[in-house]
């Protein structure tokens, strides 16, 4: 990924009308930090016109909710993996080896 390919996303001044690429980029960024009033307005304008980006916004919020769930609960059922005794042996063995060396 070269810097050049993404210049349209990161340059300071975006035109009043922004593209779907820029909108979705800014929506991601907005999740983590303050992006400024004017930029938010540009996003709103785009969302008002674009059904795909409206869907994207809704879906990405849903996705983020699940990510938060994964983060906060590493012991969910779907992660109930147990090391087998064989795996444990293997780990113990290599620890011993490295300790002695």
């Amino acid at each position: 990924m070269t810097q050049h390919d993404h210049n349209h996303l990161i340059k300071d001044k975006m035109p009043l009308m922004i593209s779907c690429d820029q909108t979705t980029y800014l929506l991601s960024k907005n999740q983590h930090e303050e992006i400024g009033f004017i930029t938010k307005l540009k996003i709103k304008m785009h969302l008002a016109m674009c059904v795909y980006c409206r869907r994207y916004e809704k879906q990405i919020k849903f996705l983020d909710k699940i990510i938060i769930k994964i983060k906060s609960a590493p012991n969910l059922n779907s992660f109930q993996h147990k090391l087998t005794s064989e795996q444990k042996e293997k780990i113990a063995e290599s620890i011993k080896n490295q300790e002695n060396s």
């Binding site: 810097q3 993404h6 996303l9 990161i10 979705t24 991601s28 960024k29």
Partner: peptide, 8 residues
């Protein structure tokens, strides 16, 4: 800025 793009 690369980080933002990759997160995106």
């Amino acid at each position: 800025s690369n980080l933002w793009v990759m997160l995106h």
